[in-house]
Design a protein around this nucleic acid. Structure first.
Lengths: 242, 242
DNA sequence: GACTTTTAAATGTCAGACAAATGATTTCTT
DNA sequence: AAGAAATCATTTGTCTGACATTTAAAAGTC
């Protein structure tokens, strides 16, 4: 691990990069302990605060974890699917909120990806995920649900659909697409009639999954996408008129 | 922005979290300047190095950028699609390499997601992306290409297919799935015959996209997935026998 | 042998200082 | 007066050295 003394980049950036490359390349393996901060500052010929800033950069990316005390130190962290989910969700959410992504674009992406999962979910349909989908569909039919709660339940339904594909890589990739839509969906006020239509489609999709009919589920998702976009278009049109 | 003095969490973590929440909630908007490090250390009643560690954590996630000099400081960063791509790719790569994800699982996820893009790519087929796909297909037919170069070209082909959907959110979501597969693909040694089959399928998919025939492209991708998995299975079987 | 105490090593935090970059201001020159 | 040069103030980047806190292991005690 070396840094370029002629580089104009900040030292802590260079050091973080050097360690990151060592991890990615496999020279540092999971759960391996990094040298202590003093040893690192000695190795890179920088002060301890600088080394610490570099380590904090890596910790922020879940690449390392630190432990205090004797036999403590910084350890290469096994990036868990949970950590990756969380990162993915915040990154996606910020991406959508900061870049003026249109509702249609986000919606298109989300449903395209979900349709990719549907055949697998139908093929591997698990009792667990089906039960979640049924439960959320039922919840959505309850009167007195706030718009936020309805949207949260919607997200839970779709997460179950995605997780039902039984592929953690898919679930991870889609976590962002599904969850990041929630703030956008929360902008929509649903009438009782809107909810009934959506809940009905959910119910139909759950039926299709249970029947193992992937292409029917895909069609159902297509209808749901069309419905969602129509709803959003109405809301935005009404808002523009005011 | 407040921190809990009774919390056992590290101060720099708490401070980073507080600022992060201010950004996500929109209380700090894009390009807004944060208070200077001295002001922050005063506000949170901690030392400057602690504030700096917090800021470095945020910088590592591209949430802020810093600038030196008068009228410098830390600014809320607009998370660009490029930054998000890069994060997504490294996260996905590490996730696959650290979690013993099987080749089949990763492959299944990748092709399921790509098939989600194909109809959109076919519908919006752009000369630019088609040209890239053709160029990469041609390159793959050249003799003397190393396995690494062949795989890199393969990735470029698929990126063009995905980007052709004209949906930046989709491109971002899939960047990880496509690129993270490369290290796994690099483990495979291709015979001339293998390459011919793959290149042929690529060519066929490009034709389908050009013709605007989404479902044919989906079928082509399905064939490509089957071929890839068969190839990988052979390689792993041969390796196990040795 | 089981329990308690001590010790050492590591990270977490602090204080104060200087270096370097950079925009703004002032001063000087023409 | 206009433009160029020098100066200044502000801010981040880095360093030094110290103390606090946590934690596992070693030493001591019963």
């Amino acid at each position: 691990m070396k840094i370029d003394p002629n580089s104009s980049a900040d030292l802590s950036v260079q050091i973080a990069q050097a360690i990151k490359e060592a991890i990615i390349s496999g020279r540092l393996i999971v759960d391996e302990r990094l040298p202590s901060e003093v040893e690192l500052s000695d190795h890179f010929q920088v002060s301890r605060p600088t080394v610490r800033e570099a380590l904090k950069r890596l910790a922020a990316q879940s690449l390392i974890r630190t432990q205090r005390g004797a036999s403590g130190g910084a350890f290469v962290n096994r990036l868990s699917f949970e950590d990756a989910y969380a990162q993915q969700v915040t990154t996606s959410t910020l991406l959508l909120s900061m870049n003026a992504v249109s509702f249609d674009t986000a919606c298109e992406a989300r449903y395209a990806l979900e349709r990719a999962c549907a055949p697998l979910s139908a093929q591997r349909r698990s009792a667990d995920h089906l039960a979640t989908m049924r439960a959320e569909t039922f919840r959505q039919g309850q009167p007195g649900l706030t718009d936020e709660a309805f949207c949260a339940s919607d997200v839970a339904f779709h997460r179950a659909l995605v997780d039902g594909a039984g592929n953690p890589v898919l679930s991870y990739q889609l976590a962002g697409a599904v969850e990041a839509m929630q703030p956008l969906m929360n902008m929509i006020t649903f009438t009782a009639r809107d909810r009934a239509v959506i809940t009905g489609l959910h119910s139909r999709i759950a039926d299709d999954i249970e029947a193992g009919d992937g292409s029917a589920a895909v069609a159902g998702l297509q209808d749901l996408e069309d419905e969602t976009r129509k709803l959003a278009a109405d809301v935005f049109a009404a808002r523009a008129k005011r």
